[in-house]
């Protein structure tokens, strides 16, 4: 089932805008329910602008965004409803924390959606359980937490709305390796618990290779590629021309193949690479 469909989406910014912004030009694609989509593209390629259309934060200059076959802008007054169906976690989401306690901050989203009482309490505790926020943290001020913990709480605040599609804009930016691993695990855990559709913007081809089903490549406001991880990462030259690259492991394999070693090209993760090399070694041993 196609859960989100973008048709001919174009967005141009007026010059007066204070922010440095990037336009989107005639982009169309569809996302199936339950898929994990990675979005890659260099800074200014239009990826942040694109995802802000998926939950109606931005209104298309032209084109439509369909959620379950219905135009999200069909009734502009109801646009807020889409925000609980398509959750969006911004870059550095910890800067959105404002409540006195972690609990209240996580409850902010669902409360805005009209959830209250036991259901609200249940939602907050359920999400904390899934992504590992301990009970003793709930009454703390979010401002007393460490950087990584703040981000976890901020992400929980969006997840507590139980969105069917959840979009992350560079969820690991600025974190150290442990923090990054934590965030990637939170995303995996949430997906397992909720079968939500996940969209992630990232600069890390390695993370994309490990996590995504399909990759969407943006370049200069246009959709350049939208295909499986294998089909996207097999086009190294094209990606490099856009200032992107393939995962490091794939680059190492390309170099080994160039040296005349008989290895497959479609290797994107460390695990796959070890397997491929082991296989090669065994074949050599048998020969």
């Amino acid at each position: 089932m196609t859960i989100l469909e973008v048709k001919g989406l174009t967005h141009t910014y007026s010059e007066s805008s204070a922010a440095v912004t990037d336009a989107v030009n005639d982009v169309s694609f569809g996302i199936e329910k339950g898929e994990i989509i990675g979005i890659i593209g260099h800074t200014g390629s239009g990826k942040s602008t694109l995802v802000q259309h998926l939950n109606g934060l931005l209104k298309p200059t032209a084109g439509t965004v369909l959620f379950k076959d219905e135009d999200i802008w069909k009734n502009p007054k109801e646009i807020r409803k889409i925000r609980s169906k398509v959750g969006l976690v911004f870059q550095y989401p910890e800067y959105q924390l404002f409540e006195e306690t972690v609990y209240a901050d996580i409850a902010f989203g669902p409360k805005n959606m009209g959830v209250s009482g036991d259901e609200l309490d249940g939602r907050v505790r359920e999400i904390c359980n899934i992504i590992g926020i301990k009970d003793e943290y709930l009454e703390k001020s979010p401002f007393d937490l460490s950087g990584g913990e703040k981000r976890r709480v901020a992400i929980a605040g969006v997840m507590a709305m139980k969105p069917e599609v959840i979009v992350f804009d560079e969820p690991t930016a600025g974190l150290d390796p442990r923090g990054r691993e934590d965030v990637m695990n939170i995303i995996k855990n949430y997906r397992e618990a909720s079968d939500a559709t996940v969209i992630i913007i990232s600069h890390s081809m390695e993370d994309m290779a490990a996590l995504a089903d399909k990759i969407l490549v943006m370049n200069k406001g246009k959709l350049e590629l939208f295909d499986t991880v294998e089909n996207v990462f097999s086009q190294g030259e094209r990606l490099r021309a856009m200032g992107l690259n393939v995962p490091i492991v794939t680059r190492i394999f390309a170099e080994l193949i160039r040296r005349g070693i008989n290895l497959p090209e479609n290797v994107f993760t460390v695990e796959a690479a070890v397997e491929a090399l082991k296989k090669l070694k065994e074949e050599d041993g048998n020969a």
Binding site: A18, A19, Q52, N55, L57, R80, R83, S84, G87, L88, V89, F90, P93, Y95, Q96, F108, G109, N112, M113, G157, V158, M161
Partner: peptide, 11 residues
Amino acid sequence: EKIMNAQKARG
């Protein structure tokens, strides 16, 4: 603007 958008995204 960013914060406003983030809070709007939380409904």
